[in-house]
Simulated scan of single mutants.
Amino acid sequence: MINLRQIKCFQAVVELGNFSRAAERLRTSQAGVSHAIHDLEALLGTRLFDRTTRRVELTEAGQIFAAGVLPGLAEIERAVESVRDLSELRTGLVRIAAPPLLGATVLPRLLQEVAKLHPSLKLRIEDVGTDLIVPRVRNGLYEIGIGTFNTDEEGIDRQHVLSDRLMVFIEMDHPFKSLEEVGWKALHDQRVITLTRESNIRLLTEIGFETAGLPLRPHLEVHQIHTALSLVESGAGVAVLPTYAFAALNGRGIAARPLTDPAITRQVSIITARERTLSPATTAVRPLLRKILRQMVPEIL
Rank of each mutant, 00 (worst) to 15 (best):
A245M: 04
S178R: 02
V238L: 09
I207R: 12
L278N: 06
K291Q: 09
E275F: 04
R286I: 14
F209C: 07
L220T: 14
S230H: 06
L241M: 07
I270K: 12
I207N: 02
A248D: 14
D164P: 04
V240I: 15
V268D: 13
R252P: 00
L259I: 15
S279R: 01
R217M: 09
R252W: 01
L231D: 04
G237Q: 10
G235W: 00
S163L: 09
S163K: 07
R252S: 03
A248R: 04
L214T: 09
L187F: 14
S234L: 11
L204D: 12
A186C: 02
A273M: 10
S234G: 07
R165N: 06
P287V: 15
S279G: 03
Y244R: 02
A245F: 02
L249R: 04
P215A: 12
V240G: 06
I193M: 05
P258N: 06
R294T: 10
T283G: 03
A186P: 00
L288F: 14
A236P: 04
R266V: 05
R276S: 02
R294E: 07
S178Y: 05
P242Y: 08
L214K: 10
F246T: 01
P287L: 15
T282A: 14
L203Q: 12
T272F: 10
M296I: 08
H226Y: 06
T265V: 13
E206F: 02
I207M: 05
M172N: 13
A248I: 06
M296V: 03
R158N: 01
R257Y: 00
L203P: 04
R217N: 14
L216G: 11
L195H: 08
R202T: 01
S199R: 13
R276G: 01
H174C: 02
P215L: 09
V168P: 07
S199N: 14
R276Y: 01
P175D: 08
F169A: 03
P287S: 15
Q190D: 00
L187A: 12
D189R: 15
I264M: 06
F176M: 06
L278T: 04
D157C: 01
K185D: 02
L179V: 01
S199K: 09
D189W: 08
L204E: 15
T194A: 08
V161N: 03
R252H: 01
